[in-house]
Amino acid sequence: MGKILGYARISTDQGQDISSQKAKLEELGAIVVFCDVGNGSSLTGRDQLEAAIRLLEPGSELLALHPDRLARDTGDLLTIAKRIIERGAVLRIADPAIRFDGSDMMAEIMLTLFGMIGSVEKHFIKARQRRGIEAARQRGVYKGRPATIDPARIRELKEQGLGATQIAKAMNIGRASVYRVLAA
């Protein structure tokens, strides 16, 4: 049997700790654990997952504790699994126990099923978030993201004779933002 590489992910480092995932993966035989902090809804920005996949060799395996640590989407989960088997390696998930090497249709069905469950879970998370934001707005607590552009500074630079491109460069913002402020 080849080497076992572990993969752990938490959504945010604000109040979440990845150490328990790492410890369990090591207990299950991972010689090294790659860790990402970020949303499971997208494969974008998952540098450690990419690094782990690149290091896989024929006969080795990538181990994750749960399917949702890899992806919360059927397509993404199957994409990851297929990339792993293209390298001659195996995807192993600890809970539920799934071993995917591309030869077992039941393992692929299980991955598909858990990918769908992740998609539904992602939908419910977003729905709860939207309800929470709406409730906060109704209480007057939620005002949206704080403004990052100072309209007064844009007008001041315009009065000094600078054009939209020059203002955008001076303030490190997009030209469209300058036009929006000036049109308001």
Rank of each mutant, 00 (worst) to 15 (best):
A30D: 09
P96D: 03
D101M: 06
D73V: 00
D17F: 06
A94F: 08
I85H: 04
S103A: 14
G115P: 02
D150N: 15
L43P: 09
G132P: 04
I10F: 05
Q16T: 10
V141L: 15
I53E: 00
R69D: 01
L55F: 08
D101C: 07
R131N: 13
G140S: 10
L28I: 09
G15M: 10
D68I: 00
F100Y: 15
Q138V: 08
G88W: 06
G115H: 01
L25F: 00
T148W: 09
V120M: 12
Q129L: 15
K22I: 15
A135F: 10
F100I: 02
R99L: 14
Q14W: 14
G132Y: 03
A97G: 09
R46E: 10
G6K: 03
D150G: 04
T112G: 11
G40W: 00
V141H: 10
P96G: 05
E86S: 14
R72P: 03
I31D: 14
R46D: 05
L78F: 07
G59F: 12
A107M: 04
L63K: 00
T44G: 14
L28C: 10
P58W: 11
A64F: 01
D47H: 14
A97P: 06
D76G: 00
A51Q: 14
E57V: 13
Q14V: 13
R54A: 15
A97Q: 09
P146R: 07
H123F: 14
E57N: 12
S19A: 15
Y7L: 03
L56H: 02
G144P: 01
G144T: 09
M105V: 12
A147D: 09
L113F: 13
Q129D: 12
L91T: 05
V33M: 00
D150P: 03
G59S: 10
K22T: 13
Q16V: 10
E121D: 11
D101R: 03
K126Q: 11
R131V: 09
S42L: 11
I84H: 06
I80R: 05
K126V: 12
G75E: 07
E108Y: 01
F114C: 01
G118A: 08
A52W: 04
S60V: 08
I85P: 03
G75F: 07
S19W: 08
I125M: 07
I109Y: 02
S42T: 15
R130F: 13
L63N: 01
R72F: 01
G29L: 07
L65Q: 07
G29W: 06
G40N: 04
Q48T: 12
G38F: 08
S119H: 06
K24Q: 14
M105E: 13
E61C: 11
K22C: 14
G45R: 10
A23R: 13
G132K: 08
M110L: 13
G140C: 13
E50I: 07
L56P: 04
M116Q: 13
S119A: 12
G102R: 03
G140R: 10
L77Q: 04
F124K: 05
I80M: 03
K126C: 09
G6S: 05
K24S: 12
